[in-house]
Simulated assay, not measured.
Amino acid sequence: MDNWIPRQTSFMENANFILLGLFNHTGAHRFLFVLVLIVAFTSLVGNALMLLLILLDPRLHRPMYFLLSQLSLMDLMLISTIVPKMAVDYLTGRKFISPAGCGFQIFFFLTLGGGECFLLAAMSYDRYVAICHPLRYPVLMSWKLCLSMILGSWLLGAVDGLMQAAATLNFSFCSTHEIDHFFCEAPTLVRLACADTSVFEYVMYICCVLMLLIPISLILISYSLILAAVLQMHSNEAHKKAFATCSSHISVVGLFFGAAIFIYIRPKSYRSAKHDKFVSAFYTIFTPVLNPLIYSLRNSEVKGALRKCMDQWHCLKS
C-alpha cells in the first residue's frame, strides 16, 4: 500500500500540465512580481470603481458609458482569470494545472480578449457618431444598437474561445507537459502536441485575422473620420482636445492589438516562448490598468461623478 500511493500521485501529476511561470526567485524577479501584483490590484480597483460610478450616477446612464462599463467588466474578469493562479503558483511552488483548468483559462481568456476587440470597435463608432453627428446621436447610437453591439462582442468572443479551447485540448500531448508560460494560451499549448497541428494552426490563424484585423480596421476608419472632421473645425482648443483624446485612445488600442497580433498572427518560425509570455503579460496585466485611465477617468463627466460619490461618502461618514 505504501508503494502504491506515490505511484498514484506521480500519475496524477503527470496527467496535469506544469506552468513554468513568468518569474524565478531572484531578487529582481521578486521585485517584478510585486510590481505585477500592484498593477493588477490597481487595475481591479480602477475598473471596479468605473463599474460602480456608472451604476450609481444617472448622468452616466448613456450608451457611451454602458460600453465603458462592459470594457471595465471584461478587464476585471481578465485580470481575475490570469493573475490569481499565477500568484499562487509563484508563492507556493505548485505549478500544476489540470486539463480542465487549462481549457477554462483558454476559453475565458479568448472570450474576454476577443470580446474586447469588438467592444473597442463599437466604442470607436460611438465616438465617431458623438463627434461627427452629435444631433443624430440618439438615432445612430440607439440603446437597441448599443445592446446589440455588446451582446455581439460577448458572443463572438465566446464562440472563438470555445472552439479554440475544445480543439486545443483534443490533441494528444507528448510526455513532457511543461508549458513555458504563466497561463494556458492556445499557441503555447499547441507546441506540446504530438499530432500534426498544421490544419488547426491554419484555421486558428484565419480566426485570429478576423478577430483582430476587422475590429482594428473599423477603429482606424472611425478615428480617421473623427480627425478629418476635427481638422475642418476653426477652434484651436477643439483641435487640441480632439487630438489629445484620439491619440490616447489610439495608443491604448495600438498597444492592445499590437501585442495580440504579435502572439497570434506572427509566423510560427519567428516565435519564442520567452518573448511570447512577456508580451502576453503586457496585454493581459498592464493594458487593463490603462483602459480606465485613458477612456474613463480623464473624462470630465466621470470625474464629476467621482467627486459627487466622494462628497456623499464624506457626508455619510461625518
Rank of each mutant, 00 (worst) to 15 (best):
R7M: 11
R7F: 13
Q8P: 03
T9Q: 14
S10Y: 13
S10A: 12
F11P: 00
F17P: 03
I18F: 15
L19K: 12
L20R: 12
G21W: 10
L22R: 14
F23Y: 12
H25R: 14
H25M: 04
G27E: 08
G27H: 12
A28F: 14
H29M: 14
H29T: 11
R30K: 13
R30L: 12
R30E: 13
F31G: 03
L32R: 11
L32H: 08
F33P: 04
V34Y: 06
L35Y: 07
L35P: 03
L35N: 03
L35M: 07
V36I: 04
L37C: 14
I38M: 01
I38C: 01
I38D: 00
A40Q: 05
F41K: 00
V45E: 01
V45L: 08
A48V: 06
L49T: 15
L53M: 08
L53R: 07
L56Q: 15
D57Y: 11
P58W: 09
R59L: 08
R59K: 14
L60W: 03
L60D: 02
H61V: 07
R62E: 11
R62M: 04
P63E: 00
P63D: 02
M64I: 13
L68N: 06
Q70W: 14
M74N: 08
M74A: 08
M74W: 05
D75A: 00
L76R: 01
L76I: 12
L78F: 09
I79W: 00
I79S: 00
I79R: 01
I79L: 00
I79H: 01
S80Y: 07
V83Q: 07
K85V: 10
K85D: 05
A87M: 14
D89M: 08
D89Y: 09
Y90H: 13
L91S: 12
T92P: 11
T92K: 06
G93D: 02
G93T: 08
G93W: 06
K95E: 03
K95V: 07
I97E: 02
I97W: 03
